[in-house]
Design a protein around this nucleic acid. Structure first.
Length: 552
RNA sequence: GCCCCCGUAGCUCAGUGGACAGAGCACCGGACUUCUAAUCCGAUGGUCGCAGGUUCGAAUCCUGCCGGGGGUGCCA
């Protein structure tokens, strides 16, 4: 990548200048290559001279000129020069830029790939909402965030697995079972009440009706919800969750069942034994605690309740033990909503108690989404009647707009989603702007097929118009962006990039006529550019899981 | 009380310690005999919550305060 090459060249140039006695010999810090905000400052810049100024006891501008003079000439580099107050600016050669059009088309759907991950095994676990009800609109943010992050890591050369943890054990599952049994009895006209902490949603009534249709009165005499009934209920809910996620364009590699941890001699038992051996479990008040305070935590946390039942925390420790020690992921990325933030540090402490370097567990927290319909605030509790489901969002604003919307904000920011606004303004939604650019290109290429049958022999050296070069420059940023997003675990740059890229194309389209049989050589070169732009735009959209329409 | 996130244009939000702080929407003025006007060009709009500090340089880092959201020993 040109950026990494530049960093190395600057490093070498600085060292050479010191060796030659042109600069005092000091330690050269890691060279940071940035993208200047203003075009007149070139394509790349480094602030190295200013960072060297103090140690070298020299004027940063002089240092910049000295180092710039020693940056070797290169086919890709048109100019390197010092600029006040002490930057070195680099400008890419236009001939080199034009040649990248062929390189991008040759890379095709792989354009944007980088080798940042080098095959490191990483698991991304996201959503993992309780299967006690359908996915709410709020889950959509985690779904979009997780799925796109996984795609980015994939493009960056990591070996990625996408996993959903199905919580089919524990307290909430019990409550789900008791609710289901009550609704089931009601199907037979019995006067059963759902538990006070149960799930009042209408979907439980429908579920009970479905199970009655499937199984008849088989469970009618049961006092406690039979496992078979509960598991059937969970299965139906999981299937519905899977469908909802698929409707949002989210697909998993693996669905992990919490219950599988509790098989005799399974991970739960072994994990508990391991913690016991490590001496980090203490008994008090009738419960078993992880002595997290010993590990630097504010407080201890219950692992096994005084009732003898394990907490969610216990499940999660066993589950992470499985991720690291059974399945050998090098890195594990968990994506949780802000309401799980309190769970982060104790989870890391637990992993560390298992003998795993806690740096291998990265827990990303996304801030919660609030939803409005105009002036009406929408509550998102599964227990309340007035809930908005992720399915509702997809139906109202469409999969593409929903994903784009969820993605465009950084995970650290709370976001407000006005459903009425998203619906009403759907035609002005940025996603359509980006897709329109793609459809326009597809239209041009389709027209070209009739008038200019082949443009393989087009000469990209003819691409010299400022709008053409600006478009190429923007396309070439995609691999850098993939690298940045993979390093920072920040997918939200992608929608902004896609918008910039679309703008660059629309600007080119306005200024430069593509199809013109009077200027066949230029037409062919521009068709090559269109093809490369389409490749780039399609890749950006595909990373976001947003469709790239042929026409609109 | 303590912990985490946020506070940037009227609104929703970008902004790897750098060079005159950006986009979309909204609002105002222009451009379709031309490959898709779901487009383009232009104008308006900012004490980057407040106060200190670090730095050659702070929207960005540190401290305090104010405001919003989330969490806080046997829910997940």
């Amino acid at each position: 990548m040109i950026r990494d090459d530049l960093a190395r060249m600057v490093q070498d140039a600085a060292q050479a200048a010191m060796d030659a006695g042109e600069l005092p010999a000091v330690v050269v810090p890691d060279v940071v290559i940035e993208r200047p905000a203003r075009p007149e400052h070139g394509d790349y810049a480094t602030n190295l001279p200013m960072r060297l100024a103090r140690a070298a006891r020299a004027n940063p501008l002089d240092i910049a000129r000295t180092i710039a003079a020693r940056v070797p000439a290169d086919a890709s580099l048109a100019a390197a020069g010092g600029a006040p107050p002490g930057f070195i600016n680099f400008r890419l050669s236009e001939a080199w830029l034009a040649r990248q059009v062929d390189a991008i088309s040759a890379a095709g759907a792989a354009f944007g790939d980088v080798d940042e991950g080098r095959g490191v095994k990483v698991q991304v676990e996201f959503v993992s909402a309780n299967p006690t009800g359908p996915l709410t609109a709020g889950n959509g943010r985690g779904a979009a965030y997780g799925s796109v992050l996984a795609s980015i890591l994939d493009a960056a050369g990591f070996d990625v697995q996408r996993e959903y943890l199905v919580n089919d054990a524990g307290t909430q599952t019990d409550v789900f079972g008791r609710t289901l049994l009550a609704r089931y009895r009601q199907q037979f006209g019995e006067d059963a009440e759902i538990p006070p902490d149960g799930y009042p949603g209408e979907y439980m009534v429908e579920l009970a009706a479905q199970i009655k249709a499937e199984a008849g009165d088989r469970y009618l005499r049961a006092e406690e919800p039979p496992d078979e009934l509960v598991l059937r209920g969970i299965d139906v809910m999981v299937e519905r969750i899977r469908e909802d996620l698929e409707a949002l364009g989210v697909v998993y590699d693996s669905w992990f069942r919490e219950r599988s941890l509790y098989a005799p001699g399974g991970l739960y038992e072994r994990t508990l034994a391991r913690l016991r051996e490590a001496g980090v479990l203490v008994e008090k008040e009738g419960a078993l605690w992880l002595a997290s305070t010993e590990l630097g935590e504010d407080k201890d946390n219950v692992v096994v309740r005084s009732t003898g039942k394990p907490t969610y925390f216990a499940s999660d420790i066993a589950y992470h033990n499985d991720k690291f020690q059974q399945r050998n992921f090098d890195r594990v990325i968990d994506i949780w909503g802000a309401d799980h933030q309190g769970h982060v540090s104790r989870m890391k402490a637990a992993v560390s108690a298992l003998g795993v370097d806690p740096a291998r567990l990265e827990i990303l927290i996304y801030q919660l989404v609030s939803f409005r319909r105009g002036d009406e605030v929408v509550r998102l509790s599964k227990r309340a009647g007035n809930i908005v489901l992720i399915r509702d969002i997809v139906e109202e604003v469409g999969r593409d707009a929903a994903r784009f919307f969820f993605l465009a904000r950084s995970a650290d920011s709370q976001m407000e989603f006005d459903l009425e606004l998203a619906k009403r303004q759907s035609a002005e939604n940025p996603v359509y702007y980006v897709q329109y650019a793609h459809a326009r290109i597809a239209g041009i290429l389709a027209n070209a097929a009739e008038r200019i049958p082949t443009y393989d022999d087009g000469d990209v050296a003819l691409l010299t118009h400022p709008m053409e070069l600006a478009l190429i420059r923007k396309m070439l940023q995609l691999p850098e962006l993939v690298q940045l997003m993979a390093r920072q675990l920040e997918p939200h740059h992608l929608p902004h990039y896609a918008q910039d890229l679309a703008t660059a194309f629309h600007a080119f389209y306005t200024e430069c006529r593509v199809l013109n049989t009077d200027e066949l050589p230029l037409s062919k070169a521009r068709l090559k550019l269109c093809n490369a732009a389409r490749t780039t735009l399609a890749r950006a959209l595909s990373l976001m899981g947003v469709s790239a329409p042929e026409r609109m």
